[in-house]
Amino acid sequence: MEFKKFLLMLTGDTDQTILSAAVQLCKDMDGKLFVLFVIEPNRVSRLASLTHQKVKIVYDKTEENGWQLLYLVEDEAVENGVWTSLHLEEGSALDITKRYIDTYQIDALLLKRKDESKRMFVSSTIPVIGL
């Protein structure tokens, strides 16, 4: 099986450490990189409650952080000659990821290895690569 289209899924929990690895993998495989940041309303509400902040403030920070992550990946991808497509969505990370896999006919899903990603590993219909 040839891997040509990769989907890197990011959420508010993702740190920057996986970005370079994702770009490098796509470069090595001569693949296209779709980068998706998902704002999860449940997570935003939970975080707002835990930190005693307004939901809007946490939402705005999450969104801005999301765009920054997307453009950081893109900047590195361009330096490495890797094709990218950036996306930001709001909703359930699991549902949106599944939709993207179908819509863009993704070959492999790239995720940060974390306990929270387990549900993706379990329910994904395509290979999942933990970075």
Binding site: D60, E63, E64, W67, Q68, L70, Y71, L72, D75, L88
Partner: peptide
């Protein structure tokens, strides 16, 4: 000026949503 550049892109993308 990478950090300002990324920040400007993020702010503009957010504004235009």
């Amino acid at each position: 000026q990478k950090s300002e550049y990324i920040m400007a892109l993020a702010k503009l993308s957010r504004l235009l949503r």
